[in-house]
Design a protein around this nucleic acid. Structure first.
Lengths: 145, 145
DNA sequence: GTAATAGGTCAAATATATTGACCTGTTGAC
DNA sequence: GTCAACAGGTCAATATATTTGACCTATTAC
């Protein structure tokens, strides 16, 4: 027998993924826009913060974009004094990326809006929901080849 | 006291959202690309299917884009015979959108890859995880103003 | 009869990303 | 020491997305 209910549930899950991601990024996008920045800049700030002292190549792998696509927003962040670079001592070809103090401050502000959103949702949900959500998201992430 | 652990967990949640969404859309994007279509076309197919006999205006509200941005991909789908239009009997200004048989077929194919992904993840996770995930996603979606 | 609505289109501007080609400087293998 | 490989950067051409603004046709509502 065809499980129509299951099909409906799956459609619901797909819709939830789409809308929730949109809501999730909305506030940070607005804040970025005020400074002439966009989601690409946010991702750079976020991952440079998370992988402090990482190289340009590391960032390219993480974001899975071309180096030309990274170049423009990264250069802007550097010239705005939000990201600073240094040289790897062992291998001088490698450029190390780090947030400056103001870069860190902006990143914290952006991230805070997403913190608050997740936090409020985790708190208003059933106690088990947070872990369930994380488990599912982790499993999906792990599917990446 | 500052809860560093909490901060780390929140960072982890943000990262999970980013990567899982990327993985989630990856396969469908590849299939679309083979036909010269993209995610925008997919969204149209998906929401026209979900809200069958909905109007152009309904679709615009759902997708939250400008009518000019909708126009091109929608026109392409119509000329490819994937979406068909008809007129609302009560109000002739309103154009009703529906998937054709081949539009429905393509949509099913695309959606199937996301079904399979979610299904396999829901099945390999703890039994409670699926509902937890849905609850969280629903709560986030409901935050939309 | 006139304003509002649903939908469509042209145009200009902007943004985003891609591929390809080529450059500098550094490292590592031999 | 030479030379290939690598990390990073840049120019150019192209494609694609998406926005705002202006304006158009039908149709409907008052």
């Amino acid at each position: 027998m065809i499980d129509l209910n299951k099909t409906q549930q799956m459609h619901e899950a797909i819709r939830l993924f789409y809308f929730s991601y949109r809501v999730f990024t909305e506030r940070a996008d607005q804040l970025l826009d005020k400074r002439g920045l966009n989601r690409a800049h946010h991702r750079i700030l976020y991952f440079v913060d998370q992988n402090s002292e990482g190289s340009v190549g590391d960032l390219l792998k993480t974001l899975a974009i071309s180096k030309q696509a990274l170049n423009t927003p990264l250069r802007q962040l550097i010239s705005m004094g939000l990201v600073e670079t240094s040289q790897n001592k062992q291998d001088k070809r490698i450029k190390i990326l780090q947030l400056t103090q103001s870069g860190s401050q902006l990143n914290s502000m952006l991230t805070a809006t997403q913190f608050e959103l997740l936090n409020s949702v985790f708190e208003s949900a059933e106690p088990a929901a947070e872990n369930g959500w994380k488990e599912i998201m982790q499993l999906i992430t792990n599917l990446e080849k």
